[in-house]
């Protein structure tokens, strides 16, 4: 099961890939232990949607998230949370 989300998050990268994930103003931080998959999406380009890099990650707490990196404005958001 998964839940859709659109929450902005802070992500730090190491060697070009996400290493930590933080939200709630940095009060909650999760270490990313595994990147299961990664791909790029163009979205609805005709309505101004920007290109994003998507990562399917597993954190140290064994939770899975779908993280999106908006490449044009360099912001990260949580797209999906997996149970």
């Amino acid at each position: 099961m998964s839940k859709k989300s659109n929450r902005l998050v802070q992500v730090t990268c190491r060697a070009g890939v996400p290493a930590t994930l933080a939200w709630k103003g940095g009060r909650q931080v999760e270490r990313i232990t595994e990147i299961l998959d990664s791909w790029r999406e163009i979205g609805a380009w005709w309505s101004g949607e920007e290109e994003r890099q998507v990562y399917l990650v597993v954190t140290a707490s064994q939770k899975s998230y779908e993280l999106c990196h908006n490449l044009a404005i360099d912001t990260w958001y949580l797209a999906r949370i997996f149970d």
Binding site: R40, E41, I42, A44, W46, E51
Partner: peptide, 14 residues
């Protein structure tokens, strides 16, 4: 149409 889904449409511009 652009707003339709179709398997032939590409996911990205790569």
């Amino acid at each position: 149409k652009l707003t339709d889904l179709h398997p032939e449409r590409r996911l990205n511009a790569e």
